[in-house]
Write a protein that binds this DNA or RNA. Structure first.
Lengths: 128, 128
DNA sequence: ACTTTCTTTTACGTAAAAGTCAATTTTCAC
DNA sequence: GTGAAAATTGACTTTTACGTAAAAGAAAGT
């Protein structure tokens, strides 16, 4: 396993700019090590970036992504905290379920469009 | 069936502001009728708004939502247009498939968190 | 040592998607 | 037909998520 990734390695891998990764650091989403002033990204940072971009693709804001990441950071020991955590997990699950439903609905409509296209194509072939 | 909806009826139904609906009109996503200057929304506008908000929840930009809506507007007659249309449908389908995968991945991670929480709860109950 | 390529910080800029405010109409209920 | 409530336009503001540019320090190949 590699110890560290440079910032440009990661920008290339994920197709984002250095500005973006620094922005995520400013926002507290990742905390790369430093050698002097230079950032050194660990595998865990790389993994976090993956999750951030996943959230971004799903239209979550940075604040929402932070919520998700905070959830991942591991369940705390105390009882009250645990219950709060599970409530948050349930909330996120609902949001995701809504998005999934939205996707299915949209796909269904695209199916209709596709069928209409194919029907029209068939007509053209027969020579309407 | 109702003939028309007022703007505030729709803002209440969908939880958006009048500004938002007017913005969508400016962007050409909806074209409500007018009685004088007052907007009168038809069922078709209402349906379009639903689709816009669905796209918004999925993190599509207005431009991308416009693409989807343009697709819905029905397949044109000409052959070249039909092929272009079907290509666009395929593209959207891919985007949606990616989002769906992202959702499944995220849900899977939430499952892990949930399990960890439950495990910790069990420990607490036994009296660690 | 020298150049090239990275990387850093700081700071200002910007596009998208509305929010907010003000000043007028318009509509509706009575 | 009048007064309150709702709707309109237009201009300006805000927030989010970065982009961009400048100025300078560090690393790496030759």
């Amino acid at each position: 396993m590699r110890k560290y990734y440079t910032i440009t390695e990661l920008t290339r891998e994920f197709g984002v700019s250095t500005r973006t990764l620094r922005f995520y650091e400013d926002e507290g989403l990742i905390q790369p090590d430093r050698r002097g002033r230079t950032r050194l990204f660990r595998a865990s940072d790389r993994h976090l970036i993956k999750e951030i971009l996943r959230g971004r693709r799903l239209g979550f804001t940075i604040a929402e992504i932070r919520e998700i990441i905070d959830i991942y950071k591991g369940p705390p020991g105390e009882l009250g905290q645990l219950e709060l955590m599970m409530k948050r997990v349930a909330e996120k699950r609902e949001q995701l379920a809504q998005k999934r439903q939205d996707i299915e609905d949209t796909l269904a409509e695209l199916d209709n469009v596709d069928e209409a296209c194919l029907a029209r194509l068939a007509e053209l072939r027969v020579g309407t």
